[in-house]
Simulated assay, not measured.
Amino acid sequence: MLGKSFATPLLTFNPASCCSPGCDSSSTTASSLIGYINCSNNITSNVTMGSWKSNYPSRKWTLHSTATDNIALTEEEKKTWNDSRQTLSALKFSPEEEDKILGKAFGHIHSPYWYEERKKEVPRLEVVNEILDYLRSLNLTDDDLIKLLKKFPEVLGCSLEDEMKNNVEILAKQWGIEGKTLRNLLLRNPKVLGYNVDCKGDCVAKCTRCWARF
C-alpha cells in the first residue's frame, strides 16, 4: 500500500537527556533512535526528551509493495500514482495488487520481462485508461482484464501504438487471428502484445519480447 514515509533525517542525540533506569547511552546509535528510544527494563523514552536536529525538510512517500522493492515518491507523484490506482480499483484489485501491477508495468518493481530497458516512470491515469480501453475493444471483458493483468501486469507499460496495436495487426494479417480467436490467444499468451523483436533464429537475448516465442 501507499503509506507516508519521511526521508530519514541526520540526527544528533543528547545522551544526558536519557534518564531512564538501565539505559546505556554509550551503546545507543542514531539508527536505533528513530521515533522512540528503547531502553532496558522495558522502559520507552519519547525522543522529545532528547535534542534532535533535522537537515532534511523535504519528504518522500514510500510505497511498500508485496515485492521486495520499496518505491519512493514525491507528494505530486503519489497523487498521480493514486489516480492511476483508481482505474484498477474498479476491477476489484486489492491495494497491494494495484501497486504491484503498476510497479511492474512502469519499472519500479523488478521484472525480468523488461531486462534493463525499462526506466522508472510514474504511471499516468490517461495512459492506463487508454490501454485498458483498447484491450476492451478486443472483446476482453473486465473479468478477462483481471486475468490478463495478473498474468502480464507489464502490459500497462507497453507502447500502445508501436507495440500493442502493431502486434494485433500482425496477428490478423499474418495468421488470421482476430475476434474470439484473438481473445483466447491474449488470455493464454498476453505477452504477445509486447513483442518488439524477431530474431529469426539468430538470438538477440531478448526472448521475453521476441516473436520466436509465439
Rank of each mutant, 00 (worst) to 15 (best):
K79M: 07
P190N: 10
C158R: 01
A90N: 14
P21E: 12
T141R: 09
L138K: 14
D198H: 13
S31K: 11
D202F: 07
V192F: 00
I131A: 04
A90F: 08
L91V: 07
V128T: 08
E77G: 05
I170W: 11
L33Q: 01
K191V: 04
L91S: 05
W175K: 15
N82W: 03
K4V: 14
Q86K: 12
K53W: 08
I170N: 08
L125I: 10
K4H: 11
R59G: 01
N14K: 07
E98H: 11
C23T: 06
N41M: 07
L88C: 10
D144P: 04
L73A: 04
Y134S: 02
G50E: 05
M164E: 06
G194A: 15
Q174T: 10
E76A: 14
F106D: 00
P112F: 08
L171S: 00
I34A: 00
L33S: 06
S17Y: 05
S84A: 15
N129Q: 15
L33W: 02
T208W: 02
K151N: 13
K206L: 04
W61D: 02
K78Y: 08
N14E: 13
A90K: 15
E178I: 02
Y115T: 02
H64S: 12
G50S: 10
S58Y: 09
Q86P: 00
K147D: 06
L91I: 07
E126Y: 02
C207F: 01
K147G: 00
D133A: 12
K206I: 06
S32Q: 15
D162W: 03
A172H: 11
L171W: 01
K165Q: 15
L2Q: 07
Y113C: 03
N129A: 10
F93G: 03
L145D: 09
P57L: 09
P9S: 11
K79R: 12
T8A: 04
G157Y: 01
G194N: 01
L33H: 02
L193N: 06
S84M: 01
R213C: 03
L186H: 07
Y56G: 00
F13T: 01
K206W: 01
T44C: 10
M164S: 09
N184P: 07
V197Y: 13
L33A: 14
L185G: 01
F93A: 04
L171V: 00
Y115H: 10
C203W: 03
R213F: 02
S31V: 12
G103A: 04
R118P: 00
K120T: 11
A67T: 09
H110G: 06
S45I: 15
D198M: 01
S40T: 07
L125F: 02
S65L: 11
G176M: 07
S20Q: 14
N196A: 08
D133P: 04
P15Y: 00
M164V: 06
V128E: 06
A172S: 14
E130M: 06
Y56I: 15
P15V: 01
H108N: 10
E121W: 03
G176W: 13
